[in-house]
Simulated scan of single mutants.
Amino acid sequence: MHAACGGRARRRGRTSRANGRDGDDGHDPRRCQRGVVPVLLRRRRDHRHRRQPPGRGPGAPGAVGPPGRGPDRAVGRSRARRTPGPADRFHRTTHRMRHPVPAGGRTDATAHRRTHSCASDVAKAEHARGLRAGWSVLRERPALAWLVGGFVVSNLSLGLVQAATPVIVVQQLGHSTGSVGLIWSAAAVASLLAVAACRGAISRWGLWPVGALSATVAAGACLAVSQATTYSTYLVLVALLMAGEGGLTVVLRTLRSHLIPARVFGATLALTILLLLAPFPLAGLLVAAVPADRLGQALGVCAVVQALALAVTFARLRTLPGLRPAHP
């Protein structure tokens, strides 16, 4: 500070000498100590106090340190803390948007586990909500519910035939395992032909006549399969059974596309598929539990149950709206 004051005095002395006036160098120690220096110190202190936030001055409650110093100087800082302005808040907000911090200050691994846990909980809730939506659709549309129920019973007989055919062909009819493959090849061709024929038949006669005819063929073929004694007869009857099942599948899928709303189609479709596949594990358990010489009788019982279920189903569907559309 003395240097600054002396510098100004020397400049004034040079100016006086340049103007032709004699004088000293202008340095007055008493003036520096009594006038200029205290004013500069006071201005600096007042400026620092004005920049402090409210309640942070030397006389504020909780302030520490000697008088004349703010709390920031007391804890070892050289300057008072500046109050953030709009520009600072804008930059802080943009930084947080570009570099988000995990909730609660968690580490990346913790946040990752929490995100996966929340995602799994949401998936479970969505799955439960989807199943409830599927059940509600089946309750609101009895035509679809009746057809699905009849198809479930029919699939029990179909699964039993599929599981018991190798045992019946090899042990009772005396043929090789290659003959079993030939049976299912013929059944697949018959099923494809039935699916192709049902397209035009439904467009011409409607869903109910085609469905009733397919159910009759499937039930009659299943009853006859349980009584077959030759390989050729067994092959033809299994092919007829699969052709009837193919026609029923076309009817079911066409009815589903007409009755299920688009917003819950996925949930209802998943539920119906689960119901239709449920009898197949049960059929495998029956084949494993029943002796080989009693498989024909078990198949006959299942065929009778299938015939009754399909008869009741299509008798009920005749009085319900839903099988009336002329186009799939």
Rank of each mutant, 00 (worst) to 15 (best):
28 D>Q: 11
41 L>Q: 13
267 A>M: 00
78 S>H: 11
38 P>E: 05
130 G>F: 00
41 L>W: 11
250 V>I: 08
281 P>V: 01
163 A>K: 09
175 H>L: 05
229 T>I: 11
137 V>I: 09
202 I>A: 03
315 A>R: 15
122 V>K: 10
71 P>A: 08
277 L>Q: 12
100 P>V: 04
40 L>G: 02
99 H>W: 12
284 G>T: 07
151 F>R: 12
117 S>P: 10
22 D>Y: 08
137 V>E: 08
264 V>M: 02
261 P>M: 06
294 R>D: 10
45 R>K: 10
5 C>Q: 13
308 L>A: 14
4 A>S: 12
118 C>D: 13
169 V>K: 00
97 M>G: 13
131 L>M: 06
9 A>M: 06
204 R>D: 13
123 A>Q: 02
1 M>V: 12
275 L>Y: 00
311 A>T: 14
125 A>R: 11
126 E>S: 13
317 L>V: 01
326 A>D: 11
214 S>F: 09
157 S>T: 09
224 A>D: 07
98 R>G: 02
214 S>Q: 07
68 G>L: 04
283 A>F: 02
145 A>C: 10
130 G>Y: 02
177 T>D: 09
256 R>N: 03
74 A>F: 08
104 G>E: 03
102 P>T: 02
210 V>S: 01
33 Q>N: 13
196 A>F: 04
240 L>A: 00
131 L>T: 01
228 A>R: 07
188 A>Y: 07
68 G>N: 08
139 R>L: 13
196 A>N: 09
262 A>Y: 05
322 G>L: 01
288 A>D: 13
251 V>W: 00
53 P>F: 10
167 V>P: 02
151 F>P: 07
149 G>W: 05
179 S>C: 04
252 L>C: 08
124 K>G: 12
277 L>G: 10
316 R>K: 11
114 R>A: 10
27 H>G: 06
229 T>R: 15
316 R>F: 02
190 A>T: 06
137 V>H: 00
166 P>M: 09
79 R>W: 10
9 A>P: 00
228 A>L: 01
236 V>C: 06
63 A>E: 07
67 P>Y: 06
143 A>P: 07
299 L>V: 05
222 C>E: 04
64 V>H: 03
31 R>S: 12
286 L>P: 05
119 A>R: 04
273 I>W: 11
165 T>G: 05
323 L>Q: 05
37 V>S: 14
124 K>R: 15
99 H>S: 14
40 L>I: 07
222 C>T: 07
239 A>W: 03
292 A>S: 14
63 A>Q: 09
273 I>D: 10
108 D>K: 10
285 L>T: 02
52 Q>V: 13
10 R>F: 08
197 A>M: 12
126 E>V: 13
226 S>H: 03
58 P>E: 15
221 A>K: 01
147 L>Y: 06
110 T>A: 15
135 W>G: 04
189 V>Y: 05
162 Q>V: 12
99 H>M: 11
182 L>Y: 10
230 T>D: 00
41 L>P: 05
303 A>M: 04
212 A>V: 07
126 E>H: 12
228 A>P: 02
84 P>G: 02
206 G>I: 07
147 L>S: 06
153 V>F: 04
55 G>E: 08
100 P>N: 05
140 E>G: 15
313 T>R: 01
257 S>A: 14
301 V>I: 11
271 L>W: 04
186 A>F: 03
30 R>L: 14
17 R>K: 11
228 A>C: 07
123 A>Y: 08
61 P>G: 05
173 L>C: 01
286 L>G: 01
